[in-house]
Structures are given as C-alpha cells and as structure tokens.
Amino acid sequence: MSKNHIRPLASLAEGQTAQVASLLSGGTMRRRLQDIGFIEGTQVECVQKSPAGDPVAYRVRGALIALRSEDSARVLVV
C-alpha cells in the first residue's frame, strides 16, 4: 500500500501516523471531531488499543482521544 493511499483511520496500527483527509460521519459526531481538532491535514497518531481491541486511543493536537471502530472507520486519512 503506497503511503499516499486514502484509508480509514481504523486501519492504522499502533505507532503509525497519518493526516486527516476527510470525515464521513455527519451531525453531532462530525462537529465533535472537528471541535477536538480532526480537520483536513491534521496529524493523527494511533497510540494504544484497548484490551478488547476496540476502542483505540489516538493522539490529535496534543490530546489522547479514544474512538470506537465504527467512528474511526468514518475518518479518512492519507
């Protein structure tokens, strides 16, 4: 897979970093994600998976935010 391939945030392995390309979720969740800094070009790092593998904690703009797999599948990154 090339480095510039668009893929869901959920596909990142622990320790991998990518940039936000676009958000597929709508409504309140879209707003919340934007408020905490998920906008185009923002760097996101996949930091830590929970014991059950879901949710996963991501570092975004200095904060650690956990997202469920359904939600991280709706964030596209490059």
């Binding site: 979720s25 309140t28 969740m29 919340r32 994600l33 905490i36 949710p55 904690a57 904060a63 650690l64 935010i65 956990a66 997202l67 469920r68 359904e70 939600d71």
Partner: peptide
C-alpha cells in the same frame, strides 16, 4: 444502536 462518542484519556 450504540451512538458515537469520544473519550478523552487525560495525562
């Protein structure tokens, strides 16, 4: 269905 949410893990 379960709704979306974000959970912040503080330092």
């Amino acid at each position: 269905v379960p709704s979306s949410f974000t959970l912040e893990l503080p330092p």
